[in-house]
Design a binder for these strands. Sequence first.
RNA 1: GGGCGGAUAGCUCAGUUGGAAGAGCGCUGCCCUUACAAGGCAGAGGUCACAGGUUCGAUCCCUGUUCCGCCUACCA
Length: 922
Amino acid sequence: MSTRQLDKTYDPKSVESRWYQTWEAHGYFHADPGDPGQPYCIVIPPPNVTGSLHVGHALNHSLQDILIRWRRMQGRNTLWLPGTDHAGIATQNVVEKQLMAEGASKESLGRERFVERVWQWKAASGNTIINQQKQLGESCDWDRLRFTMDEGLSRAVVEVFVRLYEDGLIYRGERLINWCPRCLTALSDIEVEHEEIKGKLYSISYPLEEDPQTVLTVATTRPETMLGDTAVAVHPDDPRYNSLIGRLVRVPLTRRSIPIVGDPILVDREFGTGAVKITPAHDFNDFEAGERHNLPRLAIFDHQALLDPAGLKAAEVEDDIAAAVTGLPVVKARPKIEQALRDRGFLAKVEDHKMSIGKCYRCKTIVEPYLSPQWFVKIKPLAGPAIDAVEQGHIRIIPEGWINNYLGWMRDIKDWCISRQIWWGHQIPAWYCRSCNRRFIHEETTQGPAGTPITRVTLLQGATPIVARSTPAQCPSCAGSDFLRDPDVLDTWFSSGLWPFSTLGWPDRTPELETYYPTSTLVTGLDILFFWVARMIMLGLKFMDDVPFRDVYIHALVRDAEGQKMSKSKGNVIDPLHVMDQYGTDALRFTLASMASPGRDIKLAEERIEGYRNFANKIWNAARFSHLYLDGPRHQTALEERSFPDRWIISRLNRTIETVNAELESYRFDRAAGALYQFMWHEYCDWYLELIKPTLQDPSHPEAPAARQTLAETLEIIMRLLHPFMPFLTEEIWQTLPHEGDSVMVQSYPSADPAKHAPAMEQRFALLEQAVGLIRTARVLLNYTPGQPVDFAVTHDEMTRRRQLEELRPHLERLGRGRFETGSLSGPSADKRLRLVTEGLSVAIRVTGDVDLQKALGRIVKQQEEQEKEIVRLEGKLRNQEFTAKAPLEVIADHRQRLASLQGDQTMLASSEEQLRVMLGA
RNA sequence: GGGCGGAUAGCUCAGUUGGAAGAGCGCUGCCCUUACAAGGCAGAGGUCACAGGUUCGAUCCCUGUUCCGCCUACCA
């Protein structure tokens, strides 16, 4: 037992790093497949390797650590597998910015040296978030730290790619894809963020070839694309236009004529003019329409979304127009085209129009639909089993409300564009024989700004890839051996999609994989449900033939940046590092847990954290209190021989244990935290510690040894119960309490024991609480200071309760601060008394000295009025219930009893107003 | 356009089989009572968004309306 002195306030800083180091040094975080216990495994959603901990991480990680510590203490073979993600575009962008500041570029460095540079950046900053995670107390198995681009995971990526290719589920094809003209790469559909903006709807008139006086007017939000039109579509059933189908119209500002086609899919007769221009190279719908009608694709923008001279030439744009717009970005070309159309009388109308634009999720640049050869995963065959897994309950999604979201998206899923034209990431394992593919490979070398040669490789559609696990030795067609590797890398989510099994050693059959797959729970935010969770399910089912996890717990989002709720410009961003520093890690963790209620976003206020900091301090002081008294002898006493407060608090603690376990089982972190808070503060500290003070403070008290025992026991159990939520504080306190073992984090988690349930004690406590409450209220009414002793009498309508009150005498006297007078309470008396009554319980306080009568009367009268209203309401309700006889009997009985007790109170109070004046000498 | 969620005390939010409206913070009053003023005790404060409906009874179930938020979508 320790008798160390504890400071008056809890100082998190002095304990946190110390305990973390101790835990780590003892290997408590490490899990081994050979360990006993049913496996419990969580793989962490890998944060960006170069990132730093924000409040969203703090929430996500706190919840996982709570589950992990809880399960570990329950004796499960518990693994929390940590790691980081290479975050392709995001990381590349960061390093590119650094280079730009140095006056260099990735091109001037060349691919190899650039990638090397990113690795350096990763080495320098990659530990930042790991250290911050440790600061948060995360009990990850750091021995197993993985990175999506480390050797093992890269091997898994190649393996998956090759197998999918061999199964015909990966293909290369020229499609219209979302293209970021700043990052110069393709993006998948979900990497595009849509935003609604106010745009214009332009109506443009296309003259008929054979009859230029007649025009066909189409509507578009992007007039600049009209230069690349290759048809105009109308609805085949539209009587206004269907006779025109097959005729030609002239494309304004060009020397071309294009056909009018009938297309019921593309055209909505009701919208605009009922005629639509088709630009297959620059619009997704038009691309598909173009395929239906075998239309040529005229690309007039280049990869930077600039008007391309070659494209303009191919589109036969009139020379003066071409000269005016060549090299301009889309937004600058638009007004020029608009003006030209207007000048030449082709612009029929311009009106305001709401439209949505897509932005790159990394750099917020407006994406352009762009025609280019890319790699795709054929997704439907993978999505089917992933839908079944959730529908059949092999994977539980919590809260259930998101299931439909998931299913809806999965059923409507489109092929996944997985190639990215960047350098940082897993390079696609495909090679091209230079001799066979000569005409498809364009290698262009130019002089860079620093005079360094910059080589740009373009692989055209039509090139024949050889997909393999390593560089092929020989071309199977021509036996050539000069290969060009596909320069593209994979979507960053491709590798993270393998996370649950690649991190456990796949494709090898490791003991880890055998033991921990499928993992138990995935804790994640909604924002990556499609990016990540869906892909893990599809790929896990495909390659492991089993779900990657049993439960998916989706927590609320803490919004920041553009998310209205929290933004740097508003200055309301909460930095978890700052919070931990100021209030302590445990306070932050407890706050996040208590706010993690399902289905609502978290709006974190700093005051809330402060409140839980105070809670930590409260616990700290309860421990300090115990140390004042724990040094005396303690007796192991049978439960039924312990005192009323002991048995009561043991019963309540047992109930709290039951609640916390049940709530954690159903991922209700908020309720678990709430139960702990309520119990610890308002039952343990406010009542239990107060109740046992007299016993403890009297060294000769016969019950003292048993009380000391209960105090030590309960506090030790509470520290274990609280540990997953507040690991540092509980360890620090637990170490000072009588205990066995080296650390609280490897002790058993408390479990409820029905034998400790004591309803009689809880009922007795309720009576005590009510009586003390009345006494205290009466004291305040009479303006007595808290310390001033009073004489009071307490009684109850029921005999058994009267007897109990008598037994509670010492507690009543202590907590009521006064003397419990026995004897009659009712009837006229020479003494002046203030009497308060509720539910059969009656308290009278002797009035001495000067009191603020007006105040007392005012309050009582007000209370009385409210009671009268309540009585009227209840009477009416009860009459109705008795009349219709449709309400359950117990409800009627309840109401009757309540009414009776209210009426009793009321009578007492009504008669006492006059009485009071007399009694109080008014 | 479709789907989902929210609207409860000044603020942030609980309230799951429909049966007397809750917490934290903030506020008011009294207390430096030997664990804790980051505290104790006692309070004030709500026609549970609006309008209907079902029911003996609705914050809760149904319908509609208004206002927010999110996801999703090719309406040119």
